[in-house]
């Protein structure tokens, strides 16, 4: 099976936020440094996924671990951004609830050879909800344009990626059952949003405020 060029472009785009994050490391606040570490982890995750794929070993289990790490990192970032106690508690509750769901899925339902659609969609919906809250709060509380805040770009990236891929992800096993050709065609949407997300993540490091 040949991997489409667009998939390679999407894979290479993962290096951009990690590189930009390292470039701005000294100026970044603590939360953005955590985000840089997350971007580095994502790059490593991608390299491992690619390597396992090339070796013909199933890499699904990596994707299943990636979800919870991504969700906790981004919720931590949003938690650091919001100032209202109630919203912070809500984010903590979301993180706790998702962790329980993830563990239940991991030990009771997960098939390591199969992509866990349900738990992935749950993660996307949690992150999209958190993004909407953060975007809404940014407009109300930012002293200046929201575009000058890193969390605006991260929340926007999470929201657009979620909106663009949640349905496709939900049907990924169905699409896969239709054959690799259909899967390849559809996954172009996913790769497109991966590139957009990585560019928006990279943009977030260039903001003067967190």
């Amino acid at each position: 099976m040949t991997i489409p060029v667009f998939a390679h472009v999407a894979a290479v785009s993962c290096f951009i936020p990690a590189a930009v994050g390292l470039w701005y490391w000294k100026q970044s606040p603590a939360a953005m440094r955590v985000f840089t570490l997350f971007c580095l982890y994502s790059t490593l995750h991608l390299v491992m996924e690619f390597t396992l794929g090339r070796l013909g070993i199933s890499n699904q289990f990596l994707m299943n671990y990636h979800q919870i790490i991504e969700l906790l990192c981004i919720l931590y970032l949003f938690h650091a951004r919001v100032t209202e106690r109630r919203t912070q508690l809500f984010f903590r509750a979301l993180a706790a609830l998702y962790s329980v769901l993830w563990l239940v899925n991991k030990f009771l339902y997960e098939d390591p050879e199969r992509f866990s659609e349900g738990i992935t969609i749950a993660a996307m919906l949690v992150l999209m909800t958190a993004s909407v809250i953060v975007l809404n709060m940014s407009v109300r509380t930012a002293a200046g344009p929201v575009t000058q805040h890193s969390t605006f770009w991260i929340a926007l990236a999470v929201l657009l990626y979620g909106a663009g891929t949640v349905i496709i992800t939900g049907f990924s096993n169905t699409i896969l059952a239709m054959g690799m050709e259909a899967f390849d065609t559809f996954w172009h949407i996913n790769w497109g949003f991966t590139i957009l997300t990585n560019l928006l993540y990279a943009r977030s490091f260039r903001c003067p405020s967190f």
Partner: peptide, 17 residues
């Protein structure tokens, strides 16, 4: 879903402006 997301982003940006 994308239309809603872009619409929301547009509303956020114009409100901020």
């Amino acid at each position: 879903v994308l239309l809603f997301a872009f619409g929301y982003a547009y509303v956020i940006l114009s409100s901020s402006r």
